[in-house]
Design a protein around this nucleic acid. Sequence first.
RNA 1: CGGGAAGUAGCGCAGCUUGGUUAGCGCGCCUGGUUUGGGACCAGGAGGCCGCGGGUUCGAAUCCCGCCUUCCCGACCA
Length: 469
Amino acid sequence: MASKSVLTPQSEDFPRWYQDVVAKAEMADNGPVRGTMVIRPYGYAIWERIQREIDDRIKLAGAQNAYFPLFIPESYLSREAEHVEGFSPELAVVTHAGGEELAEPIVVRPTSETVIGEFMAKWIQSYRDLPLLLNQWANVVRWELRPRLFLRSSEFLWQEGHTAHASYEDAQAYANKIHLEVYNDFLNEVLAVPTFLGIKPPRERFAGAINTLTCEGMMRDGKALQLATSHELGQNFARAFEIYYQSEEGQAELCYTTSWGSSTRLVGGLIMAHGDDQGLLVPPRLAPTQVVVIAVRDEPEVNEACERLQAQLIAQGVRSTLDRSRGSFGRRVTDWEIKGVPLRVEVGPRDLNEGVVSVTRRDNGEKLTWPLAGVAQEATKLLATIQRDLYARALEWRDVNTLDVPSVVEAIDVAQTGFAKLSWDLVGASEEAQMNNEAVTVRCLQRADGSIPESELENDLLCIVAKSY
RNA sequence: CGGGAAGUAGCGCAGCUUGGUUAGCGCGCCUGGUUUGGGACCAGGAGGCCGCGGGUUCGAAUCCCGCCUUCCCGACCA
């Protein structure tokens, strides 16, 4: 029964474990160019589920999808000083095309504030055109010095929202809405990852933003992962791209813009937030396959029973895969465990004689026996339970590994294995440098009650510091 | 981009120090058979520009130089 583990244990070498999971669960491969990534069907199926859930929420928040070009004139980037300064080190620039050197180099988009700003300026005439709420699903390129599959690749897939508003308050409220109703809701309810919500300290802000909201998650090794961010851009980009509108009073007014994004990094977050030594562990609400039905024997009665069962599951709205492959039973089981499918239903002659199926939970290994007739209903119920349990387990892990500390020195110590929470007043420029020397960074700022401050200048703020991906 | 390690079959590795016949092993893969309720077994088989380029040499997986890629630790970042 105790089979030799097919993955490097987390406790032995976490980064190695991560790579093993990515490879053995058939999620992704490295591309031929450094830092590029081939997303394999199973990894892409998970990404499609993420897309679907986030896209639904974005649309509920009122934004519409559009598509802007991959190529951006280099001159656009330079129009916003901080923006170009922040992004120029990681730009890929096209200098030749059509067999000739280009008059103006073309940048491969690292993000689309600039092109979209240009078109917002064109499309917005009156206050009646506001707010303008856009989103696009696209690939972007940021030349990375230290790539890692899903977490940091030179090309990655993401969603970037861009909005324009008539007032500062409107823009701020919308960035906040996306932060809570799109990202945090998705992360908590679907990805089953508890988050710390807060604002970034000035040095961690998006290049060109006046404020950045972040969702920070804790991975199984105690490191932090920034899962999604929403930026208030103030009037910085509106000024650079002349995004004006005519007010009710007939005055020309500058817009306030926001942008917000989440990427294929979420797949990396999924792996590291829930995975164990047996492999990936996908929360039921996210899982492309929620239930795998395994035909224990390749016999007509078994196959027919499996097909009927799967039809019932699908009719019940359960995403289900039927595994009728040959080969040893143990091997098939292990393969599905590595892929993290939440529930495994085994159907064999012995079960059929008794009119039951054998069920195993991926998250805790618990084995159950269900009457064949009630599988679809039971599965639906149990999937909901697993979803809750995964969140609870992640929340407990996070809370146990998040400690209040009274000093920067202790914060650095705690951040070796988890998160440290301390007074933001204790962190001046030299203290932040001291932490950064130890690879510890300020992940976010919060109020004492955990709520989100409007600015880093509020009194009595706390900061959460950690090592991060 | 700096410091370290490494690239030999799909994956994991040995061989390299001390250059010398047909470059090995485990897993996986293919064929046939026996199996099948937790990574099965037997027999047979396929699969290698030994990362790429150059050099030394009668002869290079092995020695030298350059480059590329991967991993770890930093700086940069979703």
